[in-house]
């Protein structure tokens, strides 16, 4: 993951730059850039979650809440109070940071399934607040007519411009996370994941590192929420419900929890599966979706990021290799 990431990042950037043009030429791909915008927005959250889950070894079933906090901060700030969208984005991120600190400090003392339930509970509580505080959030019908973003006087209101904008942010965040994971903090995260006792013995302050990872992922989710509302111009509570939290976890597991590449791959895979590829099955869609997930878990327990090694194993030995 170390050296490759820089070269890989360049290839990814080039591929993304060419993508919308490619999609225009190849028949049937016309709606792909549109879908890729959402995939990019979800990638922001999954990269944060990947740091939290794959590297720091914690779990969260409540990240939809942070997505929602960012989304509603931007929505309410711009649509109701006519504030500057960038200011709202930062306010939302700050709010998420504070909430993540307040929730993270007591919650991350919990372990395993207890942590999963506590974050799940947090997520549901925030959802109910979004749903019930009708005067602020618009209730279940949500808030609509949220203005778009503009950057240096340029309006980001077309699919193309927003595609490039979102994926530039994704690449920047990728670069930031990759560097972070190579730094001292990143090594500490991995030590916490490996063995908390050993990490503690080496003088790593484990609880503060867990909270750091949690706060980072919360802020990224909030950022994603802000970018989401400024594109779709709408937000309602069920966009950030419990199932979205679970979907985010599905994304990182399908992509591979131990790699930032996996986070992006998982987000892209799940976004396309549930928005494009399985549409042809109509009523059977849910069933096929479940089956596809199951098949990936069974055959690629390391997620899509583990695929290259799998292929090497198959090519080398003519039968599935044991990559552990």
């Amino acid at each position: 993951m170390k050296k490759i990431s820089r070269k890989g990042l360049l290839i990814l950037a080039a591929g993304l730059a060419a993508f919308p043009w490619l999609a225009k030429v190849v028949p049937g791909l016309g709606s792909y850039p549109e879908v890729m915008i959402y995939a990019g927005i979800y990638s922001l959250i999954t990269m944060g979650l990947s740091v939290l889950v794959g590297f720091a070894g914690q779990i969260s079933l409540g990240h939809a809440a942070f997505f929602g906090i960012g989304a509603y901060a931007s929505a309410v700030g711009t649509a109701t109070y006519n504030l500057d969208p960038w200011l709202c984005l930062i306010l939302g991120a700050l709010l998420s940071l504070l909430v993540a600190l307040a929730i993270g400090v007591p919650t991350l003392k919990l372990k395993g399934h207890y942590l999963a339930m506590a974050t799940l509970a947090f997520g549901i509580i925030v959802f109910i607040i979004f749903n019930e505080e009708v005067d602020i959030t618009g209730g279940p019908d949500g808030l609509s007519r949220i203005p778009g973003l503009s950057l240096f006087g340029l309006k980001l209101n077309t699919t193309m411009s927003y595609f490039y904008f979102v994926w530039t942010v994704v690449l920047l965040v990728f670069w930031f996370c990759a560097n972070l994971l190579e730094s001292r903090i990143g090594r500490a995260f991995r030590a916490v994941h490996g063995s908390e006792v050993a990490a503690m013995a080496m003088g790593i302050n484990i609880s503060s590192h867990k909270v750091q990872a949690f706060v980072l992922s919360a802020v990224l989710a909030s950022l994603a929420g802000s970018l989401y509302v400024h594109y779709i111009n709408f937000i309602n509570p069920s966009t950030c419900n419990l199932f979205f939290s679970v979907k985010l976890i599905i994304m990182i597991v399908m992509g591979g929890t131990h790699s930032l590449w996996g986070a992006i791959l998982g987000a892209v895979l799940i976004t396309f599966l549930s928005n494009v590829w399985l549409h042809a099955f109509q009523e059977w869609e849910v069933l096929i979706y479940g089956a596809v997930l199951l098949i990936i878990v069974i055959f690629l327990p390391d997620g899509l990021a583990g695929l290259p090694e799998k292929i090497k194993g198959w090519a080398g030995r003519g039968q599935p290799g044991k990559a552990s």
């Binding site: 016309g30 549109e34 937000i235 966009t239 928005n275 549409h279 109509q282």
Partner: peptide, 18 residues
């Protein structure tokens, strides 16, 4: 089918229109 989901709904409507 928008599956009662805002993202899917927006994507579907956009696809129909464009």
């Amino acid at each position: 089918d928008d599956e009662s989901d805002a993202t899917k709904c927006a994507l579907a409507v956009k696809k129909l229109m464009t």
